[in-house]
Amino acid sequence: MPVSDEQRMSEQEKDLKSYGLMNLVEGETPHVGKEPEEMTTTWPHLLVKELNLFYLVMIFIMGMSVFFDAPLEEMANPSVTPNPAKAPWYFLGLQELLSWGPPFWGGIFVPTVGVIILILVPYIDRSRVGTGLWFHPSRRLYNILFTVFVVVFIGLIIVGTFMRGPIWGFYWPWEPWPTH
């Protein structure tokens, strides 16, 4: 049955798919079996949300910047070593590890192996169950292992930031450091 251009256009708008058939290849696309009704247009639904999130981020950063000033100490002086001298907070976990044994293990080996394992994660976990769902029960072991990694990582940073005093000695946050 011949279809007029107008009819074709209105049908296009009805099922809201704007793709055309270019080629046939074997295998599934990520969209197989998904109905158009589950979808909606990016403009305006997603774009409005993205814009709102940008406002929130701006308000948060501006607010922080109005109320809290960035630290600035005395001018750099290579002959005056602060005690303790600390790395930026995101490296304090590593600095804490360093203080436990030979520097190579804490400073180079652990972070390098950590990054390599992280990159390899998708090639180790080949399951397809629970993709896209928070804390799927079939992933309990993976989630526990990852949580241990996160807790240790953050825990070491907290120890390094708040519980290390002169010559990297251990002090509770409320404990005064010896003056000399």
Partner: peptide, 10 residues
Amino acid sequence: FYTAGYRHPR
């Protein structure tokens, strides 16, 4: 990680 979003094909 917690939503397993890294799996094939990602």
